[in-house]
Design a binder for these strands. Structure first.
Lengths: 339, 339
DNA sequence: CTGAAAGCGCTAACAG
DNA sequence: CTGTTAGCGCTTTCAG
């Protein structure tokens, strides 16, 4: 069996309490004694039993990182950035447990005992039951990526409506009037926000969008491809397409080039997210950058603070998005005011 | 505080021992009693305290999923597929703890108490100390993606050398003789395997590669781009480039198109991994498919079996790769035998 | 079939 | 500054 504090106590000729205190650097213990005990612990290759600690301290040392789904509709880059961001913050102090919310049949096992805190990377309103459950159980909680107004829940996200508004305004400034929209996954908040930003920019310029010029996507390459195929069959083919993420934009570009047309010569394409590959496709994709890694870092930092200070202040942090202009948008006709 | 078996015992008018047994479906307990206790537990919204269980049962209910690194050199798609594969297998029975091996300063905390089993998605020989440590501690272990011969360690991977050999042979059958190689990250086993497969195919056909026609990459888009820029400056520019992953292939394609040349008209490009975007770039990328998700599923299944049966058989599973022919390779000159 | 008692490894009063 | 004692919530002998 493995070494316990009792073993150390025996060797050091002290009580196991003293060992416990020494190893936790308690001010109650003489420095000399501490050093001696630490040396013995080191030598015996002692590792604390976290189950025992957890039991008595009522802390699990677990942090949950929950995604809406692991199996569909989450893009790999998004997933990777989120985990990286959180991981870079928690370091050694916690174990990072990754879960898909849709894997749960019951939230019963999610308690304050099993998670010291939870980070929900939320893409859909359907995550709300989980969020409510966790808030209900009093688990420190931060929700990323989607606005929530649950009391006591920290919230970090980027202003995607604004990002979409900017991107669309840019399209308009480049002279485009006949535009199309490839929407995100139904039920995903990001899909709605981006659509709304797009629509607000249009309304702002008195442009209307025909029903034929919008298409619901799934946030994956294929749905962008298919949506674009639809648009290409239209009589009044759009001169610019706003895609609710980069994957769909890439799919759309594929459809355009297969039809023998050019991006951006014939049709301009704009994406969202600034995925790693955006700069490397040809033409390089003009898109909206969303600071996922920063969001998840901020979220993790706040969560840790929350766990440790036990203060449950509601707070929403809104990070800026940024339009990254590259090559996939072509000016259609200059309108006097420079773009 | 939360409900414990003692609370249930009090309400049911039995001892907490009986409750424990009932909830664990022990054959020692009368079915009627079980039902009654289960009903009460349900009603009180009882959740077992896993720290307490862990302490006495000496199991953590944690499964570690270790990557060589979370911060660099791991591609998002690879990461995502691996987590998905494992997650789909473990279901509710374990918590999945994701770690980057390079985040550890000491493996001290990795014990049989803290992990019931470990899956190492290994990309580098540098992971060996961790693998040895875990094997040493007697933690059930499966290593994915890289061959190891540590005793008692399960091993699931794909035959990448063979995949690279096939891909290169295909290039040769298409008439290419003047080829170039963009290598993977130094120290990554996959980089070495792919390079060796490439070289074996060349040797097999008596083709030699000039030092100028190989370039070390980092598995990311940028390094593929830069490598290709080097090749483009060569006097005897290659007619085909073998890239050790799809990201670098995309970077290379970017460099080619920026130079005013065509893929595959002027230069053929072949990748590795069959990333999601491979089919959607233009031209669609010819590449080698590697069944990451299947590998991680197989690995997880074997690990669970191993944990539960306590049998530590060394076993290596080698899964096939598959050449996916798309559009990025152009026949240079037919050689009689069809390609 | 059920219960009493002990103990997993650790921390935290309470004494001294 | 150190030790004694109790107990976290659970499972597991050992008796009955």
């Amino acid at each position: 069996m493995s070494v316990t504090i009792k073993d150390i106590a025996r060797l050091a000729g002290v009580s196991h309490t003293t060992v416990s205190r020494a190893l936790n650097d308690s001010p109650l213990i003489n420095e000399k004694t501490k050093d001696r005990i630490r040396a013995i612990a080191e030598e015996m290759d002692y590792t604390p039993n976290f189950s025992a600690k957890s039991l008595v301290l009522d802390r699990s040392y677990n942090l949950g990182l929950f995604f809406t789904t692991l199996s569909k509709g989450t893009s790999a880059g998004f997933f990777y950035d989120a985990i990286r961001g959180v991981n870079s913050v928690i370091q050694d102090r916690y174990q990072l447990i990754v879960k898909g919310i849709d894997d749960y049949t019951s939230f019963h096992s999610i308690t304050r005992k099993s998670f010291d805190g939870i980070i929900v990377v939320s893409q859909s309103d359907e995550d709300q039951p989980l969020i409510d459950h966790a808030a209900d159980k009093g688990i420190p909680l931060v929700v990323l990526n989607r606005p929530v107004d649950t009391v006591g829940v920290l919230n970090v996200l980027s202003d995607e409506e604004q990002g979409a508004f900017q991107a669309t305004s840019y399209l308009i400034r480049q002279g485009h009037r006949n535009m199309a929209l490839i929407e995100g996954r139904v039920g995903f908040k990001s899909a709605q926000n981006r659509k709304e930003g797009f629509e607000r920019a249009l309304a702002h310029h008195g442009i209307t969008l025909k029903p034929s010029h919008r298409f619901p996507g799934l946030y994956d390459l294929e749905s962008g491809y298919k949506a674009m195929q639809q648009f290409l069959m239209l009589e009044d083919r759009p001169t610019a397409v706003f895609c609710c993420n980069d994957e769909m934009a890439l799919g759309a570009m594929k459809a355009i080039s297969e039809a023998g047309l050019q991006v951006p010569g014939d049709i301009s394409v704009i994406g969202f997210d600034d995925t790693v590959f955006a700069a490397y496709v040809t033409p390089a994709l003009t898109t909206v950058r969303r600071p996922i890694e920063q969001i998840s870092k901020e979220g993790a930092i706040r969560l840790l603070g929350n766990i440790e200070n036990k203060q449950y202040a509601t707070e929403q942090v809104l990070l800026k998005t940024e339009l990254i202009v590259r090559e996939s948008v072509h000016p259609l006709q200059l309108t006097g005011e420079e773009g």
